[in-house]
Write a protein that binds this DNA or RNA. Structure first.
Length: 238
DNA sequence: ACATTAATTATGT
DNA sequence: ACATAATTAATGT
């Protein structure tokens, strides 16, 4: 729960970590240096919360490596996964939404490394750093757009189509080329997929088994690879 | 068309 | 050995 012991600024934070990321790409080396000097670096185990929904938003974060699941908890205690965040993106940017508490819980989907800064620096970042504001508002725009799409999908598509699109989205965003297809490059269970698609793990299991039999998909424990993306697209439209 | 319940098996530490 | 993940069948809405 307490994150004190491992949260310590690492002595060696190379500037090349940030130079190619959209929010910082317009900045010179000196600016990047001061940004890094204000940052705290922290490594997270798989499946741990970086912050919790509703908690005071004390810091904002940048994911350097790994994946983040953005999760909301319903009153009955079940999790709903809103979206995944890949390395290189900011998250926990409540301030950009005009909030002072986190709107959702962030859980690492894999072992991850993130930088973070105290929220009070947000305004300074926005005003002093060219391109920071436009780029971050662009990504939050993309995210709410994505979530809107998901709402429409939930309402209109059948379960089979929803998990098919979920798989395709994961493959597009986090896919890693492998011999017989594209693998989702973080551990993902059927429970996880069901939480993304508003179903049960059983239904997901049945679908994956069926798809595996038809050669669309290969899955071992916590690993899913898509061998025939096009066939999944077909299912989406069926 | 899908959830729920429950029993069974597989897999990772 | 133990816990967690996945499959499978039966039953329910």
């Amino acid at each position: 729960m307490d994150d004190r012991p491992t949260r310590k600024a690492l002595p060696r934070l190379d500037e090349s970590l940030l130079t190619h990321l959209p929010p910082f790409s317009r900045l010179d080396r000196r600016q990047i240096r001061t940004i890094l000097d204000q940052a705290t670096s922290r490594r997270y185990e798989e499946g741990v919360a970086v912050f919790h929904e509703g908690a005071p938003a004390e810091r904002f974060h940048l994911l350097l490596d790994g994946y983040i699941r953005v999760v909301r908890i319903t009153p009955t205690g079940e999790q709903v996964t809103a979206l995944h965040i890949p390395a290189g993106q900011l998250f926990g940017i409540a301030q950009a939404l005009g909030r002072n508490t986190y709107p959702a819980t962030a859980i690492t989907a894999a072992e991850s490394i993130a930088l973070s800064w105290p929220m009070r620096l947000w305004q300074a970042f926005v005003t002093e750093y060219d391109g920071f504001a436009t780029e971050t508002y662009r990504t939050v725009g993309n995210r709410v757009g994505e979530m809107n799409n998901r709402i429409v999908e939930m309402a209109t598509l059948r379960v089979e189509q929803r998990v098919a699109t979920a798989l395709l989205r994961l493959v597009n965003q986090t896919g890693r080329k492998v011999e017989d297809g594209i693998e989702i490059d973080f551990p993902i269970t059927r429970q996880d997929l069901s939480e993304m698609t508003g179903t049960t793990l059983h239904t997901v299991s049945r679908l994956l088994s069926a798809w595996e039999k038809d050669g669309l998909v290969r899955s071992r424990r916590k690993r899913v690879t898509v061998r025939d993306p096009h066939a999944l697209v077909e299912l989406t439209q069926a």
